[in-house]
């Protein structure tokens, strides 16, 4: 199945080394990550040494070599979001999920990523949940969003 789809991505691009980045972006979008086997095929079909395929995979932020979670929460840490407190959002995630940006929770539900700018700077801080953009985020709003995404209902009681 996955191979079939790889075929359609490679269609019309075989033996064209300059299509490497485009092919890998399509693969990333389709699979959510770059499977090792697929990269070997890409290397062979495009005629690019495997080392160069891996260099590209590690160089661009868009690529991930590990499967990502069902929910991808992307926190924008661009300048405009930074001065409006995107640090707090990162702290919220770290505290709440116990993972660092770039990681996925153990149950595979949530991946948290940081991005340098999504270009909606006037409305910062911005969080992108899967493909929907959320503006003027606060740690509180993010907490609820993550709880919802994780399917957890946690309530801290007064001591």
């Amino acid at each position: 199945m996955a191979m079939m789809n790889l075929d359609s991505i490679l269609e019309g691009r075989r033996s064209q080394p300059h299509m490497l980045v485009e092919v890998m972006l399509d693969l990333q979008d389709q699979e959510g990550y770059l499977p090792e086997e697929a990269l070997k095929t890409v290397s062979k079909e495009l005629g690019v040494p495997l080392i160069d395929v891996y260099r590209v995979a590690h160089f661009y932020k868009a690529f991930s070599l590990k499967p990502r979670g069902k929910n991808v929460i992307t926190i924008c840490t661009g300048t405009a979001c930074h001065v409006r407190g995107s640090d707090l959002l990162v702290n919220q995630v770290k505290g709440q999920l116990g993972i660092e940006p770039g990681d996925t929770t153990a149950d595979g539900q949530i991946t948290v990523e940081c991005v340098n700018c999504v270009g909606a700077c006037a409305l910062g801080p911005i969080v992108v949940h899967n493909e929907s953009y959320c503006k003027n985020m606060t740690p509180g709003k993010l907490r609820k969003k993550i709880d919802k995404a994780a399917g957890v209902k946690k309530e801290k009681k007064h001591a």
Partner: peptide, 20 residues
């Protein structure tokens, strides 16, 4: 693919060429 340095002209061009 998400690399600030690709805004630099020569890096951008190598990126279009499918390289790092």
């Amino acid at each position: 693919g998400g690399a600030f340095v690709c805004g630099e002209s020569t890096a951008l061009m190598t990126s279009i060429e499918g390289k790092v």
